[in-house]
């Protein structure tokens, strides 16, 4: 488990990170969301060992990595938001250089590099010069580089920024694959919906302060008293509508062609009770799910902005 404890980073009177504390469970994908200048990159750079915190510490399984740089370098893989590559170096040589910089034995390197290039779909590009790769491919190469020493925790600062939709999908696939491999992934973005679908947990940071933390649904519930539930009956739409209208904690029933959307005011147990009632009423239910709602609106609400309709 990674724990950030009372982290402070100040530049003179400017507080880039202000008493930030949170925990990230092993194997989870943690989305670090916040507007530009919120303190995401500063926090990630402290985690990666590139900046010294003014106060506070970061522990991995109880060990303080801010005081143990060898442990930090071993446990953490980092991909910055902006990075460059070396000229006149091929993809496989680029990987080999970083493998040697992590003192990985020569005998292990070839297989390791082939595996990592396979994970990010760059096997066919191994003999291409890195400076001739597209931005998306460079991002994937940098992701492979960050894995070269098999770190437990991956810190990825805006890995999808500037990528086309196809490259974004490929990046998400690669991250899901890494998550299945048991890596803890901390990923930042200033676009909440971008992270919502792959992250197990999200932290929203603004002005160096953690404004909200939890799963997307938990954050939504924190901000919105009512949850939006979509129910798709196989038949018996009329009976379903009648049942829903009788419930006191349901408002704003919207009937669509094949489903009903309701605003529900209640805890998890009450949602479960509602489903039980529908089933007891012998209405065949095809789907019953809580909707994520408008994530952009939530993000703007938390970070103190206003959503502007396009």
């Amino acid at each position: 488990m990674l724990e950030v404890n009372n982290l402070v980073k100040s530049y003179g009177k400017v507080m880039a990170v202000n008493d930030l504390s949170f925990k990230i469970e092993k194997g989870s994908i943690f989305g670090f969301v916040g507007p530009n200048g919120a303190g995401k990159t500063t926090t990630m750079k402290i985690m990666a060992g590139l900046l010294r915190a003014t106060k506070g510490n970061i522990t991995i399984d109880g060990e303080d990595i801010t005081k143990n740089s060898a442990l930090l370098r071993e446990k953490i893989g980092y991909m910055p938001d902006f990075f460059g590559v070396y000229d006149n170096l091929k993809v496989s040589e680029y990987m080999d250089f970083y493998a040697s910089a992590y003192y990985i034995p020569l005998s292990e390197r070839k297989e390791l590099i082939d595996n990592l290039l396979g994970i990010v779909n760059l096997t066919e590009k191994k003999d291409i010069y890195v400076d001739s790769l597209s931005r998306g491919m460079k991002q994937k190469l940098c992701l492979a580089r960050s894995l070269i020493h098999d770190p437990e925790i991956l810190i990825l600062d805006e890995p999808a920024s500037g990528l086309d939709p196809r490259a974004r999908v490929e990046m998400k696939e690669a991250l899901k694959h890494l998550s299945h491999m048991g890596k803890t992934i901390i990923i930042s973005s200033h676009i909440l919906p971008e992270l919502a679908e792959i992250c197990t947990e999200i932290g929203i940071i603004d002005n160096g302060v953690m404004r909200a933390k939890g799963s997307v649904l938990q954050i939504m519930r924190m901000l919105s008293k009512k949850r939006i539930i979509s129910i798709s009956p196989l038949s018996g739409m009329e009976a379903l509508l009648n049942l829903l209208k009788e419930r006191p904690n349901i408002s704003n029933i919207i009937e669509n062609e094949d489903n009903v959307e309701i605003s529900f005011d209640g805890e998890d147990s009450e949602v479960a009770n509602l489903l039980t009632e529908i089933v007891k009423a012998e209405i065949p239910v095809l789907a019953f799910k809580e909707k994520a709602g408008d994530l952009e609106e939530i993000f703007m609400q938390i970070t103190g902005g206003e959503k502007k309709d396009a």
Binding site: G49, Y78, H149
Partner: peptide, 13 residues
Amino acid sequence: ERQTLDLLVITRM
């Protein structure tokens, strides 16, 4: 300038 220094200093070197 090439933005490769950070990647270098986080290695085990």
